[in-house]
């Protein structure tokens, strides 16, 4: 049995697209929540400074902390991206294995 390369490419594209579309929806929701919360924090800091509710030390702490949280947001996004890459990678390998098994009759599956 010969391997239909065009069909295989189409299967890989469909599999990868489905995973990416699903994950991007989740990542977009997370990003929107984070950006709103970080903007709110900037607003709260401004208000607290103007109302003299925080002293200079605490102001500096909150400003440094805001920077840290923005960095952690970026690192979390990178972590989510790594998970998505892993899922796409494994899904593509799964499609390839299935296609080869179907053509050769050789079982390529190994325990995860």
């Amino acid at each position: 049995m010969s391997l239909d390369v065009n069909q295989l490419i189409s299967n890989i594209k469909d599999t990868a697209s489905a995973i990416i579309a699903h994950d991007i929806t989740e990542i977009r929701g997370f990003s929107e929540r984070q950006l709103s919360a970080l903007a709110l924090q900037a607003q709260l800091i401004t208000k607290a400074i103007l109302n003299r509710e925080i002293n200079e030390d605490l102001r500096d702490y909150f400003l440094d902390s805001l920077e840290d949280m923005a960095l952690n947001f970026a690192k979390t996004l990178r972590g989510l991206l790594a998970v998505t890459i892993e899922k796409v990678w494994n899904a593509i390998v799964g499609v390839l294995w299935t296609a080869i098994e179907a053509c050769t009759g050789i079982s390529l599956k190994v325990a995860n």
């Binding site: 984070q34 919360a37 709260l44 208000k47 925080i54 998970v83």
Partner: peptide, 29 residues
């Protein structure tokens, strides 16, 4: 603590907890 400072600390915790929960939940693939 003034109310403004409490609101600031609370929002800090919310932001960081959202990051931690979202990532840990995302690992359930």
């Amino acid at each position: 603590l003034h109310t403004g400072a409490v609101a600031l600390f609370k929002n800090e915790v919310l932001i960081s907890m959202d990051q931690a929960l979202t990532y840990e939940s995302f690992l359930n693939r």
